[in-house]
Amino acid sequence: MSRAALLVLADGRFPAGGHAHSGGAEAAVKAGRITSAASLEDFCRGRLHTAGLVAGALAAAAVLGVEPRELDAAADARTPSPALRAAARRLGRQLMRAARASWPSAELDALAGEFPKGVHQPVVLGVAARAAGLSPVDAAYCAAYESVSGPATATVRLLSLDPFDATGALARLAPELDRVADAAVEAAGRVVDEGVDALPAASGPLLEVGAEWHAAWPVRLFAS
């Protein structure tokens, strides 16, 4: 298998529906909490160390072969907002379609058959990475990067922010992304021995509350 599969999976143009989601940025922009490249960077930093870390560990654990059903239940317990649980499953379904077309595998087929309503996206990401022959750390990087790249591109559209500034913010987060991916892989290794309670449970209260507020708007640019 090829390491370059990671580039395909992590590409923003991979047809898995991520472009329709802002990762909470739309709510934070409307609430006046993201107003500039600096506050975008701070938003992304917070999301990386909370939702990004959890997503990275879920994805890495799935690559290691931890039972997806258990990971999906653990993701539910770590996602109090029903709007975010629904978004994660919708994204999981879309990623499943793209992944099955890209890396046909019996495991992906079985997972799709067992959960017709979808599985949390990071779990599908891990099983897809496994099907593509990628490693736990690859999947963790992919999930952690998605946790910040989505809000960054969404904010460019929402605030007409300079794309160079948004990309600069992502580049400055790179060293922290390395640390989060390492922590996610380390936690995933413990899950194999200790069960899913060893997954990180880092949370951002305003991400959860903001997602509920956002879901109730009659008109939105992004789905979440």
């Binding site: 909470g24 909490r33 990386l48 109090p80 997954l199 880092a202 305003l206």
Partner: peptide, 24 residues
């Protein structure tokens, strides 16, 4: 498990804890 949440804040906590995604 129906709920599992951890919040870390204050000096030395992972970055962004006081930012727009966490406590603002």
């Amino acid at each position: 498990t129906v709920l599992d949440q951890e919040l870390s804040c204050g000096p030395g906590a992972p970055g962004g804890w006081d930012g727009p995604a966490v406590l603002a």
